[in-house]
């Protein structure tokens, strides 16, 4: 799949934003709430990350001015559900941040809101992951690892952000989470690498009993929308570089910096975000769409 910046920003930023928010809410729930300023800063940051992500996803649309229409099809469409959930989840984020800031006396609602916030964020992340995982036509996405990954990466990258927001007390858990996320990522790659080749061109053509098929004349001599959108061909060098960038930036370096107690948390956040963007870039670039069977791929 063509790795479009807008979608990469959408999923990485909102992932970190929801992860951060889960950390905030979790800490509120278990009775170790951050300081007032930290909550305000944290929820604001989470709001900005999520909003940037969503705006970026809107920028991906051909007709952004109609994006409101995307909320209508919650009965079937994961994208629609995601849209609705992300808006709903803004509620707890805004409430917790706003109430902490304004202190209107509704603070008794903060605890239930934190619970709702966690549920909302988790469901939103799930719906986001399902946008991809529901697509049978893209085997690299159509699996449980993707669903798990979206939650875990959100939590790990959000955890890094939480350290920046609320200090180092949970750094051990965040480090563990980063290592766990790293493991999930590696397992995902192993899984998708192993599962390549399950779909064959011959079956796509409905002619499995005719032997081996090889393309002769293409439908059109220049590339079309389908090839540009879904025909991304990832070179092996680039794949290796990006895999290391993703692993290093997204998990290993943040974990290592946490381990050594690197003082500048925002730097760790930025590194983590860059790493996650590399991870997400690969998420697209490595995902082969079965439509390529009609074009340049023998199997996927």
């Amino acid at each position: 799949m063509h790795p479009a910046l807008s979608v990469i920003v959408f999923t990485t930023f909102s992932g970190m934003g929801y992860g951060l928010f889960i950390w905030i809410c979790g800490n509120i729930l278990i009775g170790t709430p951050p300081f007032r300023e930290e909550i305000i800063f944290g929820t604001s940051m989470s709001f900005i990350l999520v909003a940037t992500g969503l705006l970026s996803s809107v920028a991906h649309l051909g007709r952004p001015e109609r994006s409101w229409r995307a909320f209508s099809q919650w009965r079937t469409s994961w994208l629609s559900r995601e849209g609705i959930m992300s808006i709903l989840t803004f509620g707890p984020i805004i409430f917790i941040g706003g109430e902490t800031y304004l202190n209107t006396g509704l603070d008794f609602l903060i605890m239930p809101m934190a619970l709702l916030g966690i549920i909302g964020a988790v469901i939103t992340l799930y719906t986001t992951s399902m946008i991809y995982a529901s697509l049978k036509a893209i085997p690299a996405w159509h699996n449980k690892w993707v669903i798990a990954g979206f939650q875990v990466y959100a939590l790990s990258s959000g955890g890094v952000a939480y350290i920046m927001v609320a200090g180092w007390q949970h750094y051990q858990i965040v480090m563990d989470l980063l290592v766990f996320a790293l493991a999930v990522k590696i397992m995902t790659w192993i899984y998708i690498d192993r599962n390549r080749g399950q779909y064959k061109r011959e079956s796509a053509l409905g002619l499995s009993d005719f032997g081996k098929a090889k393309p002769f004349e293409p439908a059109h001599s220049q590339k079309n929308y389908l090839q540009r959108e879904m025909g991304y061909e990832l070179g092996s060098l680039r794949r290796t570089v990006m895999r290391w960038l993703a692993l290093g930036g997204g998990f290993i370096i943040p974990a290592a910096l946490l381990y050594v107690g690197f003082p500048l948390a925002p730097v760790i956040v930025v590194i983590c975000l860059i790493g996650m963007m590399a991870e997400r870039w690969l998420f697209f670039a490595e995902a082969e769409h079965v439509v390529r069977l009609y074009y340049d791929k023998d199997e996927i």
Partner: peptide, 13 residues
């Protein structure tokens, strides 16, 4: 809205 998701979902291009 041109989200292109349907084109990703269609296995047949």
């Amino acid at each position: 809205i041109g989200c292109k998701l349907c084109s990703w979902a269609c296995p047949y291009g």
